[in-house]
Amino acid sequence: MRAVFQTLTTAGTVARLEWQLEWRQGHQLAAVGLFAVASVYVAFQASDQHTGAAAWTAMLWLVHLFSGFTAIGRLFDRERSNVRRYLQWTASPLGLILGKLFHAVLTTTALTAVVLGAFLLFLGWPQGIESPGKPGLLVLGAWLGGLSMTTTLVFVSAVASQVRSGSGALAAVLGLPLLLPQLILATRLTRGALADEPWTMLVEYPLFLGALGAGTATIACILFPYIWRA
């Protein structure tokens, strides 16, 4: 009981630390937001509001994917080395990864709102498709897809941060194939939600995305102690 409580306290502390870091360094969150909005604007300029559903979906997920990389890809080498060493000696690894995951979930939620909002603002609804579709499912799909990508990315960036040189590039190389299944499910769900397909055909996709996200988060929590104390 006490161990659980301690782990949760650590998690809370780490999440708060991350949050403070985010505000104090300011530019990080702003950089991600700028990246997302600028990418959406490029997509808008390239397509000039004549985008079909397939291209719309493809661009949405490309922007989402690379914004996610920018935000989460270096989650484990942001602290200054003395803070990191302090965490390594004092914090329990499980609490640490839970805190990082919690922070990543918050970031992804904000990121989803920014990306989807910018998309609807600039590109509008895709051409050749009746307007409302399933807006709730569209938002849910973007959020769940983002989350299941994020949990994987947290694990990958934890692994990559242990490599001394070029860990940013390594996170991208290791991360992209791992994110393919989530992206396949998420794009399929987004297209279905846009085209207003019946619920019975789509209901498995949010379930799979949720399960995949929860599964990868669980494996990450189990394996993280082995990485951290290495």
């Binding site: 692994v159 242990q162 490599v163 040189s165 070029g166 390594l170 190389v173 290791l174 992209l176 194939p177 791992l178 393919l180 299944p181 396949i184």
Partner: peptide, 20 residues
């Protein structure tokens, strides 16, 4: 898709080793 991702995933294993 699963088969392709699996092969890419394990290629990542070798890349990780090489990077270390």
């Amino acid at each position: 898709n699963g088969a392709l991702v699996t092969v890419l995933l394990y290629s990542g294993y070798l890349i990780l080793r090489a990077a270390m």
